[in-house]
Structures are given as C-alpha cells and as structure tokens.
Design a protein around this nucleic acid. Structure first.
Length: 431
DNA sequence: AGGCTACCTGCACT
DNA sequence: AAGTGCAGGTAGC
C-alpha cells in the first residue's frame, strides 16, 4: 500500500527536555532511520509510520496515511498481549472514521514513547546536586531521556545487542522487521515494516533463517525466547512485568510501590523472570526493565558502565576487580543510592557521554595547511595541502601531549579550515 | 561464587 | 592488502 505523509504538526519542547538526535541513536532503540538530507527521523510504532524532526523550540511530527481516500487503515493495534490487561470497554484506541483522526492520534503515541510527562530538567538538577561527576558531565549531554518502548521489541533487540556493536545491531533489527514483520506500506518506493510479533518468530525454520541473515549465535536465543513467550507463558505474560505507573501504550497508569535502594519489588521480580529467557543475562534484563517495562531504577551495567564506575566512582579498586554477578548487583544498588528512583535515566546520560560516537575525546580536529606551487609565469601549478588531524583530548588532559598525525596529503581544494570529523565512525552514522 | 572459554559477524584499524 | 581486535554479553563448565 502506498502511503503519503500528513502535514507537519508541532509540539513545543525545549532541547533540554528532549534531544531526538541524541536519544534516537544512543543505543536505546535500533530502529529509527535518519534521512540523509532533511535530518528527518522515521520509524514504525504500533503499526504507524511516524516521522520526526526537531528545532530548538519544537518537535515536529507527522504520520503516513493511505494514499487513496477510499482506503481505510487498520486500527493501530497495541501489542496483542497488552489487551488482556484491560477490559475491552476501556480500549484507548480512538475512533478513526475521519482522516483527521488518524492523523491526530499519533500525538499520544509520541507523548508515551518519549515519556514526555517526565520533567527531565528537574531530574538533571536533582542528579547534579547529588553527584559531582554527573554535574560535570551532564551539561554537554542534555535532553537525554529513556524511551518507553514496547517490552517485546526491547527484549529481542537487546538479545541482539550482546557482544555486538550499535551499527550491526541496527542492521539485524532491520532484517527482523523486513523478514518477519508486517509490511505497513511504502513511501517514495521505500517499504516500511513493523516489528515482528512473538508468534512470527516461533516457526521451525526461524533459527536457520536468522543464521543465514547473519545473526550468529543469537539466532537460537531469539527463536527460543519467542517460543517461550508465545507458547510457554500465559498470553500477555511479558506485560504483567511492567511498572503499573508506566504501563504499555493505551493502558491507564496505576499507583505503584515505594522505592528502596535495591529497586522496587516489581522491578526485582521482573528482572528475575526475564533471566529465565534464553540469551537474557543481567544486563539485557535490566535494559528490558528500564526501556521496555518502565522500571526507571534499572541500571544496565555493560562494559561502558563498568569502566565509568571504575574510572569515576572508584569501583573495582579493592576486591571486586572483575564484573561478577555480585559486583553487578552492588553497582546497581550504589547508583540507585546516589541517583534515586530514576537511576536508570541518569545512567543513560553518562553512558551516552561515554559512547564513542558522542564523546569529545574521540573527535578529531582537522587542520589544513595550504601550499601553492607556482611556475615562472606566476600561474598556480598545483596546490598541495596538508591535512593534519589532532586528537582532541579531554579537558582534564589538556596538558598532556597532543597526538598529531598526518592523514591526508595533496588535496586539490581546501574547503574548510577547521572541520570536525568523528574518528572511527560506525557505518550507521555515515552520510 | 569467581573465573575461565566459546560463540557469529562485520568493520575499523594496523 | 591480509590480519587482528573488538563491539552496550550470555551460557556452560
């Protein structure tokens, strides 16, 4: 089905409250694609193709609708299994007899997905007053919030993430959608698919197909987890693990429990239950708790966070020099004591600040030196420029020697005197 | 309990 | 230009 976009709508929001250019590529979701020229982001959420862009004052959004007036779209269906947690009479799906309705009902999806009811600026100031390191690092990384994603999608995406890099995770998730997800429609000849249901990944040949698609040993985990969720658990089981205060899209929030430094009871139960799934260890379970189940206190500890803990929080200096299960738990408890109920949100800010693609210390300052060679008549015979790249070190290391390296010679044209390029860009960020 | 190793693949870097 | 190490871990000893 051919789709066309509605006109842009806008929502007033400050970049300190939300920065989509950071949030959509810091490794929370692996599905958003940025268009090369316009900087526009696109993704299918709950069966709806959504397009976003942002300036300092507004978040702009639009959705794709059927091209033909006579065609009617299917209702946006929340994950089938969430329906069980509410009665049919209180379905949150709005009436969609008119095109205007199909257009406007995207706003609730966006507000839910970005958890816009949470005041991020307030949280940043709380974390800053409680933690000097956060106060130091955070100002360069504002507007980073935790996305409220679908639990099933989050689970599978983070099973893919193990021992893997963001670029390849994104490739794999795209393959999942294209090969096993429902096709939503095409825009400008490009097809868009939704994320596959658990049932779609339970087939006997799924593991083989996934291996052929390059999933490696994760193929087995994905298939096995799909079988477990779809056939060996009650319908909607995954969604019973959600934080009632932050439920799936379309479900009304309910009061929750009190927080303690080990995390709320519901969080600990969810974490424990997720560990029963194949390919889910403590880190993946925490990612699902945080981003897919609404447990804001979950702190996923990966290699980055472990390094941050050692470097900035004096962890691992004494006994626990390796990341054992005991150390893992101790770290989560420690960060929850420092940052409080939204520890996972705070962790995400520091994690992003440490990601190669965002980190200052891995960017390179390019300096261009131009030499002209002229012949006897004064005509320019050739231009030779030397481009030197200086790795910009962190502010702490300003006095340290700068690493200088010649990267390119004999440029015919000099375009900029100072350009910032990212070292070792992953393919995802190119173009 | 802590400490190994194997596991798939692609790509940046040497 | 071929070779190596690593990327937001997990399972199984």
């Amino acid at each position: 089905m051919s789709l066309r976009f509605s006109q842009w709508h806008k929502l007033p929001i400050n970049l300190s409250e939300l920065c989509i250019n950071t949030v959509l590529r810091c490794g929370q979701s692996f599905r958003w694609q940025q268009l090369p020229d316009t900087g526009e982001w696109r993704c299918v959420l709950y069966g709806r193709l959504i397009s976003l862009k942002q300036d300092p004052s507004y978040l702009y959004y639009r959705t794709a609708l059927p091209n033909s007036q006579t065609q009617t779209t299917a209702l946006p269906t929340p994950p089938a299994s969430t329906v069980i947690s509410r009665s049919e009479s209180e379905s949150a799906t709005p009436d969609r007899d008119h095109a205007d309705d199909t257009d406007s009902d995207v706003l609730p999806i966006i507000k839910h997905y970005f958890a816009l009811s949470v005041n991020l600026t307030e949280l940043y100031s709380q974390w800053s007053s409680a933690d000097p390191n956060f106060k130091k690092k955070a100002p360069k990384f504002t507007g980073i919030r935790i996305l409220r994603q679908d639990a099933w999608e989050t689970l599978i995406c983070f099973i893919c993430s193990s021992n893997n890099n963001i670029a390849r995770i994104s490739q794999m998730v795209e393959k999942l959608c294209v090969n096993f997800g429902k096709k939503i429609g095409t825009v400008d000849g490009r097809a868009y698919h939704d994320f596959p249901t658990p049932e779609a990944l339970t087939g006997d040949n799924v593991e083989t197909r996934l291996r052929e698609l390059g999933f490696g040993y994760r193929a087995k985990f994905i298939h096995q987890t799909a079988v477990t969720v779809a056939k060996e658990r009650e319908p909607g089981w995954l969604y019973t693990l959600e934080n009632p205060e932050s439920p799936a899209f379309g479900v009304d929030p309910a009061p929750g429990e009190e927080m303690c430094f080990q995390g709320r009871e519901g969080y600990r139960r969810a974490h424990e239950k997720l560990l029963e799934l194949q390919g889910v260890g403590p880190k993946v379970a925490d990612c699902v708790c945080l981003m897919g189940l609404g447990w804001s206190e979950a702190v996923p500890v990966d290699t980055h966070v472990w390094q941050i803990a050692q470097r900035d929080y004096k962890f691992g200096k004494d006994r626990n020099k390796s990341l054992t299960k005991a150390t893992y738990d101790a770290l989560g408890n420690y960060f929850r004591q420092v940052w409080g109920k939204e520890a996972g949100w705070a962790h995400s800010v520091l994690f992003t600040a440490d990601l190669r693609a965002f980190s200052e210390k891995h960017t390179t300052k390019v300096e261009v030196e131009l030499k002209e060679e002229k012949d006897r008549s004064g005509q320019i015979k050739s231009k030779v420029s030397t481009v030197t790249a200086k790795r910009v070190l962190e502010e702490d290391d300003k006095d340290a020697a700068r690493e200088t390296k010649t990267v390119k010679k004999e440029e015919s044209v000099v375009q900029t005197v100072e350009t910032r390029v990212t070292r070792r860009r992953s393919s995802r960020f190119q173009k």
